[in-house]
Design a protein around this nucleic acid. Structure first.
Length: 836
RNA sequence: GGGCUAGUGGCGGAAUGGCAGACGCGAGCGACUUAAAAUCGCUUGAGGAAACUCGUGUGGGUUCGACUCCCACCUGGCCCACCA
């Protein structure tokens, strides 16, 4: 291979650094030796090092490399620390892109997916990671999705799966359901530009809300605070009360209208009542004279896109529907309105409006000239309903509330109101969650089938376990609209009822791919096991995952679903732990010109060219050198130029080590020089190990570069040092510390320097503080906090003597010029600050 | 609107409250070469001949001492977004 960067060999007898040759050589040797496989029977302690598996889009880009290199560096480090490291990889293989390829290019989804996997697997192998390919898991294979279906049945048995109506994106022109990704920002269909609207469909849900409180616990896990906070906000636990109101419909019947509020202490402030436009009682409570207006409003709300409806800063809208509720607290008639700021999906879809103390209600009241009544008054000033221009939230003391007047705004007051509500039989304390049940139905072809059948006689019936898997047909034809072809395959749809044996229809929806990724980490433990989803003893051996690494964007979806799954399986007795991932780390994202890389945007950076030119070792180290691993980076046109620096570094390591080999071992060298070598060696061990263990790969590398530069300098100054034992050990240290980052060159040099076993099973060097200690330390001398001088002093000099030495230094003495210092600050080994 | 996070040379970035700019890229000069590339050496925050002065988004504060801690603001990124 010819590149302009590569140095010529300056001596014929020395081996030349040819990265690609070395890399393919060692990758082959490692693979044949099974070096990357984590055996199930092994006496070392286990370490399960997991990375979020990729979607097989077809091309491995530099972002994948970044992510997987960091994980591999950490895995290799743990292996060198003596762990039996299991580091598997697989493919999250169901999903929309395969279906789009099938529609647009007429290639079968399965074929497309598997050829992408083959390509990505071979690309991945070039990075020289310790991926345990014997454990590979592909979620679209029947031996995997059989168990995805099985989990569905188990959740169904436990009452955690249920069917309900939910809105989907419906394109009236294509006559099909669209995924959120297929709806453009302006609310139109990506295929035909028709306006998409919401339509209710019967779909399957998982009752994740039943686990909301448990999901807030985080038992025995060490996760980033940020991620837990995101999940907590997502789950959104709110304590409050349910209060029952009653209203009379135009049919003279009385209807219950419960509401949920977090502010039961403001019930006396209610001046109107609002229902979500979709609320089922709207029809009964709308008086005939309001019918037309109300219907028009509901129509309008339905036609709005999510983006429109969710925008906070739009003006409030709504319609009075003609009926009233009676406030059980004040006995007043309170008008009922509908408005889209009340959501059917949260609480009861109805609220009591207290405009004086809720900003949204306040805006609504002002817009429609509805009354406002203060039930809290600030302690330090007067406020009037007419002049206030925003709601008063959490301030002051209770007023206008009968026996409660005078109470302060606090939890105790809220509790007294709830007690009162419960005592009067008007309602009860209640906790609500923002999180909704998990909708897993997808009106898509390329996913795991939902193992359910519909019988005219027996209704909904689960497919019996022994009939699993419900196989997904592989040769299918798509309608031009992109509709799921499953509906039109009679052999798939028509089946028999497991209960009565009569004719029945299969469910044609498939499962959300998050379902597949909610348990893949369990499958890695026994990927070939066919007696169940996993082999219980191997689960006990490997789980929970010790280290999980992946993007922060999965905080509220995948990471929550996987925890829910694990907890549900624990409760069914399949697992003896509740949290799947003990430690979590989010790597940063590599952007291209400040934008996310994606195949669809066409802005991906391919690693292949760089790997061919500089070798995988250089690309790995280069990516890790860009910055802190959790920060990611912005890839611009000049970024690539930096790889030359890493390549030079590796070449210099190569030259340093191969130069030494020419020297005879066992020569003697001045003990002072030997001590200097040891000092540099042990200082490096300390900082580099510390950095590697805390994922600071960029500073670990700069530490190694400084080490390399230091050793080169020593060899130049005193060539004889290269014959010493200390020198050989110093080079061993260099190679061992560099091995996790650049595994091939270090393995090659390890062999060249006469070692007979792989460098990657070496144990890490141990830091010796005594060897690292300096005789002299450089002391910084400041006057009034400003740097004035640097003085070398013996490391063991006492404080008084240090101060005297400093004060008698000519520059300092001149600056002080006879004045008496007010104070002298002494930080041992670091600095002296003289305050004048 | 809320939450989180970041802001340091021409660039990527480094600094348990203690020498700002480590390490690397790029650039400049030099050596080697007929020449170029590669390699090696030196220089490289700004101003200044130098002594020295200024300098980590802006403005305050705490401290002997602040890139680092506190307050306010400005700008970017990410997540959530009318959740009663």
């Amino acid at each position: 291979m010819d590149t302009q960067i590569k140095p010529e060999a300056n001596r014929a007898e020395k081996p030349v650094y040819r990265p690609t040759d070395i890399e393919s050589k060692w990758q082959k040797i490692w693979e044949e030796a099974g070096a990357n496989h984590a055996p199930d029977d092994d006496s070392r302690p286990k370490f399960y090092n997991l990375v979020m598996f990729p979607y097989p889009s077809g091309d491995l880009h530099i972002g994948h490399w970044y992510n997987y290199t960091g994980v591999d560096v950490f895995g290799r480090l743990m292996r060198m620390k003596g762990y039996n490291v299991m580091q598997p990889l697989g493919f999250d293989a169901f999903g929309l892109p395969a279906e789009n390829a099938a529609i647009k290019r007429g290639v079968q989804a399965r074929k497309w997916t598997l050829s992408n996997i083959a390509k990505m697997r071979s690309q991945l192998k070039t990075m020289g990671g310790i991926w345990d390919w014997q454990r590979e898991v592909i979620t679209c294979n029947p031996d995997y999705y059989k168990w995805t279906e099985w989990f569905f049945l188990k959740l169904y048995e436990k009452g955690l799966a249920y069917r309900a109506k939910a809105p989907v994106n419906w394109c009236p022109s294509c006559q099909t359901v669209l995924a959120n990704e297929q709806v453009l920002a302006d609310g139109t269909c990506e295929r035909c530009s028709t306006l998409v609207y919401k339509r209710d469909l019967e779909q399957w849900f998982f009752r994740i809300t039943a686990y909301a409180d448990r999901l807030l616990e985080y038992k025995d896990v060490s996760w980033p605070e940020k991620t837990m906070l995101m999940q907590r906000n997502w789950i959104g636990r709110s304590e409050g009360a349910r209060v029952n109101f009653k209203a009379t419909g135009w049919d003279s019947q009385e209807y219950d209208l419960p509401i949920f509020t977090t502010r039961p202490d403001t019930v006396y402030g209610i001046t109107f009542f609002v229902l979500a436009p979709e609320h089922p009682l709207v029809e009964k409570l709308t008086t005939p004279d309001k019918q037309a207006e109300v219907n028009a409003y509901i129509e309008k709300a339905r036609g709005e896109t999510d983006i429109e409806r969710q925008s906070t800063d739009r003006e409030k809208s709504g319609v009075f529907i003609g009926s009233y509720v009676i406030s059980p607290f004040t006995g007043e008639k309170v008008p009922i309105w509908i408005s889209d700021y009340v959501l059917m999906g949260y609480g009861t879809g109805a609220i009591m409006a207290v405009p004086a103390h809720d900003q949204r209600d306040f805006e609504f009241a002002r817009k429609f000239n509805l009354p406002i009544r203060l039930v809290y008054m600030p302690d330090d000033r007067d406020l009037s309903e007419d002049s206030m221009n925003e709601a008063l939230v959490h301030e002051g003391h209770v007023v206008n509330s009968g026996a409660f007047n005078g109470l302060p705004d606090n939890q105790e007051t809220v509790k007294q109101f709830i007690d009162h509500i419960e005592h009067e039989g008007l309602g009860n304390a209640e906790v609500n969650y923002r999180v909704r049940d998990w909708l897993i139905s997808r009106q898509r072809y390329w996913g795991a089938p939902i193992p359910m059948v519909y019988c005219d006689i027996d209704g909904i019936q689960p497919v019996p376990e022994e009939q699993l898997p419900v196989l997904l047909p592989e040769e299918v034809e798509f309608k031009p609209t992109g509709e799921s072809p499953l509906k039109y395959i009679p052999e798939f749809v028509n089946t028999t009822c497991p209960k009565c044996g009569g004719p029945a229809r299969r469910e044609t929806d498939t499962m959300d791919t998050f379902m597949c990724s909610s348990w893949y980490f369990l499958r890695y433990c026994s990927p070939l096991f066919d007696g169940g989803a996993f082999e219980p003893n191997l689960i006990k051996k490997w789980m929970p995952v010790d280290q999980y690494t992946g993007g922060a964007e999965h905080a509220t979806m995948h990471l929550l679903y996987a925890r829910f799954f694990t907890m549900a399986l624990h409760d069914m007795g399949y697992l003896n732990f509740e949290e799947p991932f003990t430690r979590l780390f989010h790597q940063g994202t590599i952007l291209r010109d400040s934008k996310k890389m994606s195949k669809s945007k066409g802005n991906v950076v391919a690693p292949d060219v760089l790997v061919n030119q500089y070798g995988a070792d250089a690309v790995r180290a280069f990516l890790m050198f860009l910055g802190p691993f959790d920060k990611g980076g912005n890839w611009t046109d000049t970024t690539e130029m930096q790889i030359g620096g890493i390549y030079r570094f590796l070449s210099r390591v190569w030259a340093l080590v191969t130069d030494t080999v020419a020297f005879d071992k066992g020569g003697s060298v001045d003990s002072k020089i030997e001590a200097a070598v040891r000092r540099l060696q042990h200082k490096t061990i300390r900082r580099v190990l510390q950095d590697l263990e805390s994922w600071q790969f960029n500073t670990a590398l700069s530490g190694l570069m400084e080490y390399n530069n230091g050793l080169i300098k020593m060899a130049q100054d005193t060539p004889a040092v290269q014959a010493s034992v200390a020198w050989r050990e110093a080079l061993d240290t260099m190679l061992v510390l560099l091995a996790p980052l650049s595994p091939h060159i270090t393995e090659e040099l390890w062999q060249i320097t006469g070692h007979e076993t792989s460098i990657h099973i070496e144990t890490l060097p141990i830091y010796d503080a005594a060897l690292a200690a300096d005789d002299l330390v450089t002391l910084v001398v400041q006057i009034n906090g400003k740097l004035r001088e640097r003085i070398d002093i013996p490391a063991d000099m006492g404080e008084e003597e240090v101060k005297q030495t400093v004060l008698s230094a000519p520059k300092i003495a001149a600056a002080v010029s006879g004045a008496t210092p007010k104070k002298i600050i002494y930080v041992p080994g670091k600095l002296v600050n003289i305050v004048l």
